[in-house]
Amino acid sequence: MGALTKAQMADRLFEELGLNKREAKEIVELFFDQILMVLERNEQVKISGFGNFDLRDKRERPGRNPKTGEEIPITARRVVTFHPGQKLKARVEAYAGPESD
């Protein structure tokens, strides 16, 4: 099965909720854009039933160029982490893995 994309999410809103195609596309865009904007303001996003997007500040740490072995510091940065909620975790745990032929 292929990966789920914004286009498929919009199609589903069109099919299941009867939004017109333009509205459906706009809603999907807004959904991800608004989450992005809030994270950009350094604010946590909590989607009950799905999970939380948190922000973590990382200090500078020593790193290495894997090709040359040369030491280069990894600069201090802010990163997004996702913590799935109980409901999503429980649903995913029920997945038995790819079927073998």
């Binding site: 099965m1 999410m9 989607i47 790819p98």
Partner: peptide
């Protein structure tokens, strides 16, 4: 309703073993 449908679509996709790919977002 749309947000709930999207979250259900995403959760269902993951629980069936498929990926979600949102360009720019992740």
């Amino acid at each position: 309703l749309a947000v709930k449908e999207m979250l259900e679509h995403m959760s269902w996709t993951l629980s069936s073993g498929a990926r979600i790919e949102i360009r720019g977002f992740g």
